Amino acid sequence: MKKLVLATVIALSVSSGVTLAADTATQHFIPVTEANFAHAETARMYRNWMKAGANQQFAILENLPPRGNKAPTVQMNDDTLYAVAILHAVEGKVTFQIPKTDNYLSVQVITENGHGEYLIVEDGVHTVKVTDTKTAFLIYRSGLENGIEQARESLHSVDVSLFDFATDYVLPKYNFEEVDKEVWKRKRIVDGIVEETGKFTYTFPRTPSEVTDLQQWNLENAAGWGGASPVANEGNKYVNSPFIHADKCVTTTFEDPKNTFFTSVTAYDAEKYLIEGAVAVNSYTWDKNKDGTVTISFNCGDDAINNIDTSAYKGDFTITTRHYGATQQVIDSEYDLIIKQLKEQNG
């Protein structure tokens, strides 16, 4: 049983055979278009994780995701450990196992077109059909509610003998510098939407047939690739905030949404990467007010309740709210109850 243990992810300059099919100086690249952007961005994510051997071994993050753009994926959460396996879809299906654990442990099955077709939390061996894909990208998320050691143990107890690793997978011939530029452009569009409307909410359609707004789908892939669809008490809801002034004390006070699994608030830099020293606040550990509400503070000092300190970044930042196993009320709400209550404090 092979496992890849990563102390830091992707920051390692690992060469695992992730090469383009021809020399980049002479290669004819696939143009990146609106129609194939999700496929191109997904190929970039495959490329990032293949550097860690995810198409050959179970690539386990032993620690929380790296801060800044060393992270393999944008908007990684700060509440779980990750592990990834890239598998063949054999006769249109993939097989994997979720061991019995005492912490949150899920598997998301993502196709080459970027769709998180399944999010599964039940223990046992699962075989699922996947749509329009020869391989599938499996993301394991292991919750930290019982500590990081148990989160690691849960990932290491996965039966990887069931995995049919896609060792012969060849990346599509995209110019990934061009993909990076297209991602950057769409992130700026997301910024504009948030500044105009006060939020950006992710829908993450599970299959191509569920895409009703191609621009929205492409924006979601650029700003938050790999998220799960908001299905009541099972899937997740994610919302981005407007930029928050880093030199102000800002708070939000809200009723506990009581999502099925957990709720979290995470700060990100302008490119949607985690900030050094800015630890997420989640419902596993947050302190509540006497009336049962929750207050989360940003840059309000060490004595402030549930304070998130972004000072290492030196710039304005955004937050993302995550509702894991979102309630129907959270899904139906037009405005995120946490982001809506953001207020600058005097002094």
Rank of each mutant, 00 (worst) to 15 (best):
G192V: 02
G224P: 02
T95D: 03
N63H: 15
K187F: 03
K134H: 15
N346T: 02
A59D: 08
F243A: 12
I86H: 08
R206Y: 03
H39M: 08
G192I: 07
L214G: 01
L155W: 03
I308D: 01
T33Q: 10
D316T: 08
Q108L: 04
H126W: 07
K272F: 15
T327Q: 04
Q341K: 12
N282E: 01
G315W: 02
H323F: 15
Y118V: 00
K2L: 10
V294R: 06
L342Y: 03
A59L: 02
N36V: 07
E276I: 01
D256G: 12
D303H: 07
P208N: 11
D191S: 12
K248V: 00
D191E: 14
L219T: 04
A54N: 06
E344K: 08
V9F: 15
S311M: 05
V32P: 13
T73Q: 13
D180A: 13
D164L: 07
Q329F: 13
Y118W: 01
N282D: 15
I319C: 09
A40P: 09
T131G: 05
Y335M: 13
D291S: 12
A267L: 00
D247P: 06
W49I: 06
H28I: 05
V130R: 02
N233T: 00
V158E: 08
L12N: 12
E210R: 10
R152E: 07
D302S: 14
Y140L: 09
Y324R: 03
